[in-house]
Structure formats: structure tokens, C-alpha cells
């Protein structure tokens, strides 16, 4: 079992009568890219704000690198965060802003500023002040700050907002590189679920402040994988025919005489022919596939009400 980087225990945050987060317990392990999925107002940003100390929980606790309470402060020094819109001193340039935080955080070596500016492709911004930056440039600078101290744990809230397609691809590659080369653990939220699904190794689904499910990408993939869904009159016989006639046991028999077959996807006529020839009536047959978005919508009960 790998080291736990972040664990929240019954974390709650209320604003007046409204509960932004309700008894949420998530676990992020070392090396995970943990995708936080949820609608607007589901509690993703609140969770990240509680983890980074911008807000205090009304109930529950945060454990970071095994540290809680007062020891959380030094543990936060091992993290890099970009929560909501990146914010910097508007009257300073990209380099000056990063130099300010480098000094403040006591990070040795001036070269680190150029290094991270290079990483996020902002090296050529020169004397341009932050207040004149485009949203994409602001996102990149936010990311640069989050990376500057070579964090063990990155917390990124909607990090690809405002990035152009090239920027999104670079960002995706950067995250993978950090995760693979430096074993950086990442907690990331995004509305663009296709992007999230291309990097995440596990997911937490939030809805109205509650954690609905935590699931690994592998399990999600298994649940979502494409299959031929067959509704038949005699499932045991159909299963036997699939094994003997088609030589496959890559299928599942589900309640209600339903069989999900995970191969022969490009040869449905061969499947139907084998079953019909074997005396099995096919009541329905369809190719079924689901992605992260479909899974999420199904989980929260059919999408936006």
C-alpha cells in the first residue's frame, strides 16, 4: 500500500445554513493523479481551499503527508497549488512575481524562476505586467508558481481554463511527466472531463457537497468499457455457445438474461449467427459504451435537473 499524501476525515464546511462540503473523506495516495469531478457548486473548490488552508473546516480534519493540526503548515510547504483564478501582483511582470514568491518561500537559486517560466512557455513575456496578461498567460503563470518549489503534491483547480489547444496538450504532457518522473501526486479538478480522463489515475465524484464515490481509473475503465450488450431468452445456453462457438470467455452474465461481451465487437453478425444457430433467441442487441461523462451523469442521476 503506497503512502497516503492527502486524507480528509469527515471534512465539512458550512456557510450559514448551506453546507458546501458535508462529511467528505477522500484519500489520495502517492503517485496518484486524482481527478475531482463534480458540477459547479459541488464542493470541489471548497475541498481544495480547505486542504490549502484558505478556509477552515467547520468539522473534520485534513491530513497532509501524515501531518495534521499545526504540523499541516510545514506539510503545505511540500505542495504547489493553483486554486480558482491565478492571482498575482498586477504591477509586476511574470519574472518579478515569481522572484517575489521565490524570496518569500526561501527557494534557493535565481535560476529556478527561469526554469519554471520555460516549463510553462512564459519566458519571453519581458516587461509585460501581469495586469495585461491574457487568461491563458495567467493560468500558465499560476502553474509556474505551483511548480516552483518542486512540490510533492500539486493541487490544481480548473487548470486548463483559458489555455489554447496547444497549451492544453502541453499541460497534459507536463502533468504526466511530473507524475512519472518525479512521482508528483496531483489533485486536479476540471469541467472538461475528457481531459481529466486522459490523465487521471483515480477519481472522486462530488455532488452537493457529498462524496458519491471514489474509484480508480482502472475500475472506471472496466465499468465503462465498450461491449456488445445482448438480451437473450436463455443466458446460460448463450454463455455456453459463446465459449464453444466463438471461443471466448470475455463476457459477463448479468441479471435479467443480459450478457455483456467484450470482444467480437467488430463482428456482431458472427455473434448473432452463432447464438441463433444454437437455438438462442436474441431479444435485443446493442453496442454499449460509456465514458467518464456518461458515468458521472449516471452517478448523479441523469444530469442537471
Amino acid at each position: 500500500m503506497s503512502e497516503i499524501v492527502l486524507a480528509t476525515h469527515g471534512l465539512s464546511r458550512a456557510y450559514g445554513r448551506s453546507r458546501a462540503l458535508d462529511q467528505v473523506s477522500v484519500t489520495v495516495r502517492k503517485g496518484d493523479i486524482y481527478g475531482l469531478v463534480g458540477r459547479n457548486g459541488a464542493g470541489k473548490t471548497t475541498l481544495m481551499r480547505l486542504v490549502t488552508g484558505q478556509s477552515t473546516p467547520t468539522q473534520g480534519s485534513v491530513e497532509l503527508f501524515g501531518q495534521t493540526g499545526r504540523e499541516l503548515l510545514p506539510a503545505r510547504g511540500r505542495t504547489g497549488a493553483m486554486i480558482e483564478v491565478p492571482s498575482f501582483a498586477p504591477f509586476l511582470t511574470a519574472r518579478e512575481n515569481l522572484e517575489y514568491y521565490r524570496l518569500q518561500r526561501g527557494i534557493p537559486g535565481k535560476g529556478v524562476v527561469d526554469e519554471v517560466l520555460e516549463q510553462v512557455d512564459l519566458r519571453e513575456t519581458g516587461k509585460k505586467k501581469f495586469k495585461t496578461f491574457s487568461l491563458g498567460m495567467k493560468q500558465r503563470l499560476g502553474l509556474a508558481l505551483a511548480l516552483m518549489n518542486h512540490p510533492d503534491f500539486l493541487i490544481l483547480d480548473e487548470p486548463i481554463n483559458g489555455l489554447d489547444p496547444e497549451g492544453v496538450a502541453e499541460f497534459r504532457a507536463l502533468l504526466r511527466r511530473l507524475n512519472q518522473e518525479r512521482q508528483t501526486t496531483i489533485l486536479i479538478s476540471s469541467h472538461i472531463l475528457t481531459e481529466l480522463s486522459s490523465v487521471a489515475t483515480c477519481y472522486g465524484f462530488l455532488e452537493q457537497g457529498n462524496l458519491l464515490e471514489e474509484i480508480s481509473a482502472q475500475t472506471l475503465h472496466d465499468k465503462c468499457r465498450t461491449c456488445l450488450r445482448l438480451s437473450v431468452d436463455d443466458a446460460p445456453r448463450a454463455a455456453m455457445l459463446l465459449q464453444t462457438g466463438l471461443g471466448t470467455d470475455n463476457f459477463e452474465v448479468l441479471p435479467g438474461s443480459v450478457i455483456e461481451l467484450y470482444d467480437h465487437l467488430d463482428r456482431p453478425q458472427e455473434v448473432s449467427g452463432t447464438l441463433v444457430a444454437g437455438g438462442v433467441a436474441i431479444l435485443a442487441m446493442e453496442q454499449k459504451s460509456a465514458d467518464l461523462e456518461a458515468y458521472f451523469l449516471n452517478l448523479i442521476g441523469g444530469g442537471r435537473s
Binding site: T52, G53, Q54, G77, E84, F88, A89
Partner: peptide, 19 residues
């Protein structure tokens, strides 16, 4: 103080664990 609330920059300091 440099308009830290207006430019929302205090979060960068707090999130890094500066007391």
C-alpha cells in the same frame, strides 16, 4: 499591503503554509 485582497494574492502565501 499592496491591495492583497483586491488582487486575491494572499491565497498564494497561505496555500504554501506560511503561518
Amino acid at each position: 499591503f499592496a491591495s492583497q485582497y483586491k488582487s486575491s494574492t494572499l491565497k498564494n502565501e497561505v496555500a504554501f503554509g506560511i503561518p
